[in-house]
Amino acid sequence: LDSSGKLEAWHDAKEIKEAAQSMFNIGILELEDKAKVESLYWEISQAVVRDFGDRTMVPEEIRQLDENLSDQYLCNFSVFQSLIDHWALKQLFPIVPLQGLERPPERDARLVDITCDSDGQVDHFIDPEAQRDTLPLHLPTSVGGGPYHLGFFLMGAYQDIMGDMHNLFGRVNEVHVFLDPDEENGYYIEEVIEGTSIASVLDMVQYDEKALVRSVKKQIDSAIQDDRLKPSEGMRLLAEYSNGLRDQTYLSF
């Protein structure tokens, strides 16, 4: 099919997908068949987007389709805490990968945070010509397979102050780095300030760390007395709970 034929096929597939959804809603289409229809729809969508990929004039519906096909990268942070102006004002911040810089990225993605809010995402990015809705990124498996690190720049103290305790995530770790030509690497780290602990955040909403530990210990003691839990296992659980309260609010790797 040429471009017009592919676009027409996509329109047909879109109508079939919507019809399949309606049929599924009233119970005359099985889930397995609905999944097959949607799989074919997305395959056709990918083919159409690829066909328009190298063109300067792209229909708006294809631009939107390209955005819908983009990946979502789950990032270990909170937009509301660390990037509040992006959510509130759609402020653009420079965001770049810190790994795999020797090779071009393979994917286009939006960034989503670990909060429970659908608004907790970054979907506007700086582009040399104009802003874009996705960010070119590497597949994490192609750059070592471990955590894939991104750099968020020009945030500064203002974002830090404006950020609230939304979802009780608290502040992230802070590192004070100074440039110094006399140092071997050209810089040195003056200070590392740890982020907010779980216990500190809970204390802000009137949950006392010691009271929480006592409550859990009481439940563990009761389980041990009723032979529902071995003493060694109970002490291990209590230690894990206590250590967890002193851990930071963000994910640990």
Rank of each mutant, 00 (worst) to 15 (best):
E106M: 13
L101I: 11
V201K: 10
D164M: 01
E30I: 10
D54P: 00
S118R: 02
P181E: 02
F125T: 03
Q99V: 04
R214P: 00
G244I: 03
L65M: 00
Q46C: 04
V112M: 05
M204R: 11
L245Q: 04
L137V: 13
N76K: 02
Y207R: 02
P94N: 14
G144E: 05
E129Y: 14
A19K: 10
N243Q: 10
L40A: 13
F169S: 03
H86Y: 08
D33F: 13
P181D: 04
H166G: 06
Q81G: 07
E183C: 14
H166W: 07
Y187I: 02
V58D: 10
D66Y: 03
Q219W: 01
D182N: 14
Q206Y: 08
M155A: 08
E8M: 02
A88N: 05
E174G: 01
R228F: 01
K17H: 04
D66I: 01
I44G: 03
P128E: 09
L98M: 15
K6R: 15
L111V: 03
L89W: 15
H124M: 14
F52V: 02
A157E: 15
I193F: 01
D66G: 06
L179D: 01
H138Y: 13
H166C: 10
H176C: 07
D2G: 04
E190T: 01
F153P: 09
V37M: 11
E233I: 06
I220D: 06
